[in-house]
Nucleic acid binder design. Structure first.
Lengths: 333, 333
DNA sequence: CCTCCCTAAGAAATCGATTACACCTCGATC
DNA sequence: GATCGAGGTGTAATCGATTTCTTAGGGAGG
């Protein structure tokens, strides 16, 4: 592949001049024409590796996504990618697969590649590499999930308003025994959603006792199913269940169907994260929709602020409730 | 961040020696210890940009995925990423979003970054950059979708056996009026699936007339719904429909539900690509499952063969039919 | 007509690694 | 005891760009 020297020779100028033409600095029209012609004829494209070495800027951002097969994170990644590209950055995606060790592995290779900045939706809270990222001075922004002890801005959604609205609706619909399926204790996201839901319910005089708080170590569909099964074996089974992740909701729904229970007649079901196919399930699922694309955009902007040395604050965007039939709404028109 | 020179100074050796220690070439035990100690103390990590410039190997592969929000491609990307990582490569993902222009844009930046090889599941067939990739000598492997006129190995699934089995089942179940929803004419994937399905049906004496071949320019859910609607308006509506993409199947299912038709009693529904949540729909959807993870793995291996100068052939892996209730199977135990 | 300044463009240093080549040392061989 | 070989290490070239420093040349002002 042609390099800058070839272009310089062909145009009869020095490499410095070629570089200046290509970077739009001060060359006179005639020289400029010759250089551009040579570039055209040789099909020259600057070598980004060499440029990155010299300028200490790679023009690439890293994104660690906790689980690429989870549609919520897929959409998030898609949004981040869109925004990064439109701002002239390319994106190196690493999929942690909810495994902290794999996440650390990825962060290491991204640092070695000298990406300009890093977005992390962290799998777990025990990542040792995250501290090293901070120590290395690489701009870091957390996405969707806070990590205790890591001093970096975090871009995520605030479920308070949506959960408040949800509690009101459940109360109005006469549901008396709400339940929640969360990630295991100790994960900030799960703790927070639990606390907010409990507070919102309390405002309507509804209790959320520990027996109706189910947690599952795997954030997967089997975990959701197991928890739902335990709920239904209670002396007083819940009449409304909030699943704090879309995969766990699937499992919960399967268990309900297997037992011949009807949604929402027997149990109302509400899901955290709105995924495109929730409108296609039977019944369509009421969801708490996070502003996914906005989160992705905001994360990129926050990261760019850090990269450019501007002040960067955490961002909290409101999630909102999308009522569908699974919690007793009338069918859509 | 510390560089190789800092390490050399601290260890009291030359940079060449440091490099040799780190690359496992021939240094004696005692020197080795000193170097490793210095690396440790300084927290040195080699700069991959500099290394890439010198060695002309970046250790990164590019993957252009036609639509990141389509679960089939997500799983494919996940499999590719897994395999690439386990072989010591990292992956730069570009999402074409089914837009050829965006795809070309991405291919360009990947070439500029001097990735070692490129995997492309192409959006459309009119990509001009794909020819340039071939011309540039960058190893290229096509994934899932062939592109006419591009001389590169292609890794994809062969639906013949699955479609043959499907035709047999439909015939055995007494379905007489099959239909198919495909991508617009001119796309090799769609053409092939249509031809194979038609041939398989013919072997059982079933015809697939043009009026029961619906195509839609957008590969999305609305397109699938529109086609299904047209089918149902026919004088003799189909009693079995094959949707050649999971999003189009969603739309088709919505239309059936909106008209109060039952699956599979009124119309059997079969979907190309098996997506995790097809088991959670009502009824569970019969699907033609492509060996997604194997495709991803094979694609990486084929690409590595090309990179290392070994001969690389196209790969065809068999898809298989996963019978579920939507085409009249008995409920799962 | 000379000087000063500004612009355009070339020469060379630089980024941080790898690696070809030269050199040195030490032990073995004749 | 001189020579040869091999293994370890240092010096310097190299990858392909950007950027600083330098120089040449041309126009304006005195």
């Amino acid at each position: 592949m042609a390099n800058i020297k070839d272009v310089a020779e062909r145009a009869g100028v020095s490499v410095a001049t070629v570089s200046r033409v290509l970077n739009g600095r001060s060359p006179v029209a005639e020289t400029r024409e010759r250089v551009l012609a040579a570039v055209q004829e040789l099909g020259y494209r600057p070598n980004n590796v060499a440029r990155a070495l010299r300028t200490a800027r790679t023009g690439a951002l890293g994104l660690i996504i906790s689980d690429l097969t989870n549609p919520f994170f897929t959409e998030l990644a898609d949004a981040v990618e869109d925004e990064a590209r439109s701002l002239g950055y390319s994106l190196v995606i690493g999929n942690a697969g909810e495994r902290p060790a794999q996440q650390d592995d990825y962060i290491r290779t991204l640092l070695d590649r000298r990406i300009d900045g890093l977005l992390v939706s962290s799998a777990g809270t025990g990542s040792t590499m995250l501290r090293e990222v901070v120590a290395s001075g690489t701009p870091l922004v957390l996405l969707d999930r806070v990590v205790p002890g890591i001093d970096a801005p975090c871009v995520r959604a605030d479920g308070r308003a949506a959960l408040t609205e949800l509690a009101g609706r459940l109360a109005a619909l006469g549901r008396r025994r709400p339940a929640i399926i969360v990630a295991p204790a100790g994960t900030p996201t799960g703790e927070e959603r639990l606390a907010l839901f409990r507070a919102a319910l309390a405002a309507h005089g509804l209790a959320l006792p520990d027996e109706r708080v189910g947690s599952t170590p795997d954030l997967q569909h089997t975990g959701g199913r197991r928890v739902m099964s335990a709920f239904l074996d209670l002396a007083e089974p819940p009449d409304a269940v909030l699943a704090t992740d879309n995969l766990m909701a699937l499992g919960a729904m399967d268990e309900l169907r297997a037992r011949g229970l009807r949604v929402p007649d027997d149990v109302a079901l509400v899901v955290y994260d709105d995924v495109p196919w929730f409108t296609h399930t039977d019944p369509p699922l009421t969801a708490i929709a996070q502003p996914t694309r906005e989160l992705g955009r905001a994360a990129v902007h926050t990261l760019l602020a850090r990269i450019e040395g501007r002040p960067a604050e955490s961002v909290l965007l409101p999630a909102h409730l999308v009522p569908r039939r699974s919690c007793g709404e009338p069918p859509a028109p």
